[in-house]
Amino acid sequence: MFAQLLSDIGSLWAKYGTVYLNGIANTLILATVSTLIGCVIGFFCGILQTIPCGPGENIVKRVLLKVLRIIIRAYVEIFRGTPMILQAVFIYYGMPYFFGISFKDIWTVSIIVVSINTGAYMAESVRGGIMSIDSGQFEGAKAIGMNHWQTMLYIILPQTLRNIMPQIGNNYIINVKDTSVMFIIGFSDFFAVHKMVSGAVFKYFPSAFMEMGGYLCLTLLASFLLRRLEKKLAGKSNYELVNTDQLVMTAGTYQYPSDAGAPFDESSREYKGENQ
């Protein structure tokens, strides 16, 4: 049985190897680009949602912020609450229907759909990440005169990014797998290759076997790389002193001299000995 499976896979690979590889490449590119754009959308929504709005602000700003928050809320709820496969159909066929815009390039529409879908999830992750940052970080930044954008860009979001890295990893892996629904509008990703090849040669199981293995390899590789990135973001675990701190007293030499003492310690025997 296994011999049969192996020979089937072998023949599929010999004939369609490059097609499969091409599918993998398309899947990876779509997932990576869309996750990155989705992150940018998410962070942008995060900044907009946390613009401070006290009772002292003028009415125009308050109304604008309120409207902005409603729009972001609606965006998140709509794109989180409907299947991506339908969103793809909706946008791909809806745009020519309503606006007369048709997409010549399947890449553009695929990236748009996956990006805004990811962005909706990321917006919530980023909001959670920002909420988890100690309010002292905001106050410290405010106290040296930073405005909201500066505070967010240089202080809060870098810390948020580190905290939500596991979430971003989740989204990336989900995207690697779920971009497979884009076959519905004709995007030739890894899964679309399976449909095409197995339809042509009727070897459903061997092809599915390869697909399973391929997707698992991709996601394991992604997990591994994301862990590495997380470690890198955590920064160095040690640091070099440039010289010594003059104000900190070295433990043990000042307050609690040992019996033998040290030459530079006033209460040591050597010190007294030298003076006598």
Partner: peptide
């Protein structure tokens, strides 16, 4: 501040 509020992401 009492709780320092140094920026944790910076040296």
């Amino acid at each position: 501040f009492q709780s320092f509020n140094l920026f944790n992401n910076l040296t």
